[in-house]
Every structure is written in C-alpha cells, then in structure tokens.
Amino acid sequence: MIHSRTRRFGALRLLTILALAFMPAATAMGAAAAASAMAMPQGRCDGVVSDSAATSAIQSRLDWSSAIDASDVRLVTRGGVTEIRGLVRSEAQRLLVGDVARDTYGVERVNNQLDVNDWAPVTDTAREIVVTRDAERARDHGKLRSDAWIAAALTYTLSFSRAIDTCQIAVESADGRVSLRGTIASAAARDSALALAKDTLGVQSASAAELVAK
C-alpha cells in the first residue's frame, strides 16, 4: 500500500510540474498552492486511524516541525504500538520525537529505541558530513511554504493531536501569519494548538485570539 501511494503521489507531482511549465506565472502560482494542499493525506476526522495512518501522521508531524531533526528517524506502528528507531543528536530530540508519537491518535504505546549520538565529529570527513547535513536542513527549513500548504499541514497536524482533541479548528494563513478560529475544550488545549502552529515550518507568527476555550 505504501509503495502504491508513493507512486501515485509521484505521478501527481510529475503531472503538476508539467502543467505548471506551460502556465502563465500568476496561474502557475495559484495552481502550485492548490496542488500543495491537495497532496496532503487525509486527516484523522476523515476516517478510522489505522496503523499506517498513525505512522504517516507521526512522520509528517516530525518532518513539518521546525524544532525536530528527524532525518535519521525510522518508525513503524503495529497494533497501536509505535516503535521508533534511528539516531538523533541530543536527548532532548529523543524525548521530543517520543512526545510527538504519544500525542498522535492511533498510537496506544510508544517504544522509543532512538539512539543519541551527541559526540562531536573528530575526523575531517565526519565534520564535513555534519556541516553538509546542517546546511541541507537549513535550506529545507528555509524553503518558502505557500499559505495553502501551511493551512493544510497545520489542519492535518491538529486533527491528529490528542492534546487538541477536536477537528473544529479553522486555520487561516496570510504570508505565513497564522490565525486559529473555533471552539476548543480548554485553555491548555488552546495553548497546545498555538504551540503546534508556531512549530510548523513556514509559519512566521501565530494567533489563537479567536480560538475560544469552552
């Protein structure tokens, strides 16, 4: 199923690129924004959270977080148990990855087997690898995200968060400035939603002034 979905998204991306190549600039920008939102997987409120959906949600949340480097993180969910393996560069990162998994609907238990490699590189080759990877991550995090992408990514993230526990939050983004609207169960949940918004790649600022706690 994963390979099939990858091929489907690959074909969609190729068709989008070909279409944009022959569009006027203004039209192409609008189509790109729409395509970025359309390519998002389904959120929790669209159906039952299967093991594969939970795994995809965790991976997406890690990839879209400005605070986490998940380039060497691998995970799988079976029977509601998510096993996390790979490498991170600090104990704080290891704990953050585990927290994201535990906060995701569809996950009943987390087996965090991440190794921490916080040693400073001692060889020229190792130092070059670290510098290259840090530069690649900085470039990826610095990429311009469209407002459509930001709104879709954050809506998806919020739908899977246990701390939020609602699918009734409206997300609007204008030039990376995000506003959240709707009703939420508590002030603590509102704070969590605001924190997730600020942590999403592409978000310049976030406001929850119109997100009302019951």
Rank of each mutant, 00 (worst) to 15 (best):
R8Q: 12
F9H: 14
L14D: 15
L15G: 14
T16R: 02
L18G: 11
L18W: 02
A21R: 00
M23I: 05
T27P: 06
M29G: 00
G30W: 15
A31S: 07
A35L: 04
S36F: 00
A37P: 08
M38W: 11
A39L: 11
D46C: 08
G47W: 02
V48T: 10
D51Q: 10
A53L: 08
A53G: 08
A54G: 15
A54D: 07
S56M: 14
S56G: 15
I58D: 08
I58G: 12
Q59V: 07
Q59P: 07
D63L: 06
W64G: 05
S65M: 09
I68G: 04
S71W: 14
V73M: 11
V73G: 11
V76R: 15
G79A: 09
G79Y: 09
V81L: 04
T82Q: 03
R85F: 04
Q93P: 03
Q93F: 05
V97W: 08
G98P: 06
A101Y: 06
D103S: 05
Y105C: 10
V107S: 03
N111T: 14
Q113M: 09
V122G: 07
V122K: 14
V122R: 14
T123A: 06
T123P: 13
D124M: 12
V131H: 12
D134G: 10
A135T: 14
A138L: 07
D140P: 02
H141R: 13
L144N: 10
A148Q: 03
A153S: 11
F160S: 04
A163V: 00
A163N: 06
T166P: 01
Q168P: 02
I169S: 02
I169N: 03
V171I: 01
S173Y: 00
A174V: 09
G176N: 09
V178H: 02
L180N: 07
L180I: 00
L180M: 01
L180P: 05
R181H: 13
T183K: 10
A185L: 00
A185F: 04
S186M: 08
S186C: 13
S192Y: 01
A193Q: 07
L194C: 10
A195F: 12
L196Y: 06
A197E: 01
K198E: 01
D199C: 08
D199M: 09
T200V: 08
T200K: 01
G202Y: 01
G202H: 00
V212M: 09
